[in-house]
C-alpha cells in the first residue's frame, strides 16, 4: 500500500514538481527584475522541448546529449524575443508587456505548429526498466535523470546568484531597481542574464516533460497555471521559493488523485490542474507574499 503510494504517486509528483520548478524560477526572476508576468513562459518551454526534438533528429544523439544545445538555443531566442517585443514597451505601463506576452505565447506556439505540425511526438521509443531500490521502490532511470539534473541546475543557479558579481547585481535589481540603478549597476546586462537563465531553465523543463510524457504543441500552455501557482506560493521574486512551490504544486496534483478513502480516487485525474488553481486562490487570499515572503505585485 505505502509502496504503491510512493511508486505511483509520490515519485510522479516529485518529477512533475521539478518540471514546474524549472519554469517557475524563470517566471519569478522575470517578475522580480522586469516586473511583469510573463505568460509566454509556458510556450518557451514548448519551444525548448521542440528544439530538443530538432536536435535529436539532426544529430541522432539521445536527448540528454542535445539538452545543453536546446537550452542555449532557447536562451538565445528568449533574449531575441525580449529585444523585439518587450524592450520597446519598457516605458509603457507593465500591463502592456503582459498583453504582449500573450501575443508572444501565441506566436511561439503557432510557429512551432507551422514548422513541426500538430502530431504528438516523442524523443525515443522503447521501454525503460525501472531501477529497484530496497526491493520495493521502483524508479525509472529517466526520473533519476530529471530529478538529478534539476538539483544540479538549481544549485548552480543559487551559486551564481550568491557568488558572482552579475548574480548579486540581479538580486539587487530585484530588491530595489532604482537604488540599483543609482549605484551604477548595469541594468542591461542584468536583463539579458535574466532572460538567458529563464530561457535555459524553461527549455530544460520542457525537454524533461517531453521526455517523461510526450511532445505536443500545447505542452507549455498547460503548465502556465501550475507554474504561476508555484511562483506565488513560493513568494514572487524568490527562486528557492519557486522550487519549493513547484514541488508542492506538483506533489499536490499527483496526490489529489490518490485513493485515500477506499477505492475511489480523491479527485478525478481530469481535474488535476484544478488543484494548482485552488492553491493559487487560497494563497492569494491567505498569504499573497508566499512561503518565503516574496513581493506582492
Amino acid at each position: 500500500m505505502l509502496i504503491d503510494f510512493i511508486n505511483n504517486y509520490l515519485m510522479n509528483g516529485i518529477v512533475l514538481g521539478c518540471i514546474y520548478a524549472l519554469g517557475a524560477i524563470g517566471i519569478t526572476l522575470l517578475f522580480g527584475i522586469l516586473r511583469f508576468s510573463h505568460f509566454a513562459h509556458g510556450d518557451m518551454m514548448t519551444l525548448g522541448a521542440y528544439l530538443g526534438l530538432a536536435g535529436v533528429w539532426i544529430t541522432g544523439q539521445p536527448v540528454w546529449i542535445v539538452l545543453p544545445i536546446a537550452m542555449a538555443a532557447t536562451a538565445g531566442v528568449a533574449v531575441g524575443i525580449d529585444r523585439a517585443f518587450y524592450h520597446p514597451l519598457r516605458n509603457a505601463p507593465t500591463i502592456v508587456a503582459v498583453i504582449a506576452s500573450f501575443g508572444v505565447a501565441l506566436m511561439i506556439r503557432s510557429a512551432i505548429q507551422v514548422i513541426f505540425g500538430v502530431e504528438i511526438r516523442s524523443y525515443a521509443r522503447g521501454f525503460e526498466r525501472p531501477i529497484l531500490l530496497f526491493d520495493a521502490v521502483r524508479i525509472l532511470p529517466r526520473h533519476v535523470w530529471i530529478i538529478g539534473l534539476t538539483v544540479v541546475l538549481v544549485v548552480g543557479l543559487q551559486l551564481f546568484l550568491k557568488m558572482t558579481r552579475l548574480g548579486k547585481a540581479m538580486r539587487a535589481v530585484s530588491d530595489n531597481p532604482s537604488l540599483a540603478r543609482v549605484t551604477g549597476i548595469n541594468t542591461r546586462a542584468v536583463v539579458i542574464a535574466t532572460w538567458l537563465i529563464g530561457g535555459a531553465l524553461a527549455a530544460a523543463g520542457g525537454v524533461f516533460l517531453g521526455l517523461d510524457t510526450q511532445l505536443d504543441t500545447n505542452l507549455g500552455w498547460n503548465l502556465v497555471l501550475p507554474m504561476f501557482a508555484a511562483a506565488v506560493l513560493g513568494g514572487i521574486g524568490q527562486p528557492v521559493g519557486a522550487v519549493l512551490g513547484g514541488l508542492v504544486v506538483g506533489i499536490a496534483e499527483e496526490l489529489a488523485t490518490y485513493p485515500f478513502f477506499g477505492g475511489q480516487a480523491l479527485l478525478s485525474p481530469a481535474y488535476k490542474s484544478a488543484v494548482a488553481f485552488a492553491i493559487l486562490i487560497l494563497m492569494l487570499i491567505i498569504r499573497p507574499t508566499g512561503i518565503l515572503k516574496g513581493r506582492v505585485f
Partner: peptide, 28 residues
C-alpha cells in the same frame, strides 16, 4: 472578489485559471 484587490497580473492569472478549469469541466 478573490483577486481584484491585488495588482492586475493576479486577476489575469485568476481568469486564466477559471477559463482552464471550465474547459476541463465542460469537457468532462
Amino acid at each position: 472578489a478573490a483577486t481584484i484587490r491585488l495588482r492586475s497580473d493576479y486577476l489575469a492569472i485568476g481568469t486564466i485559471g477559471i477559463a482552464e478549469i471550465l474547459r476541463l469541466f465542460l469537457k468532462n
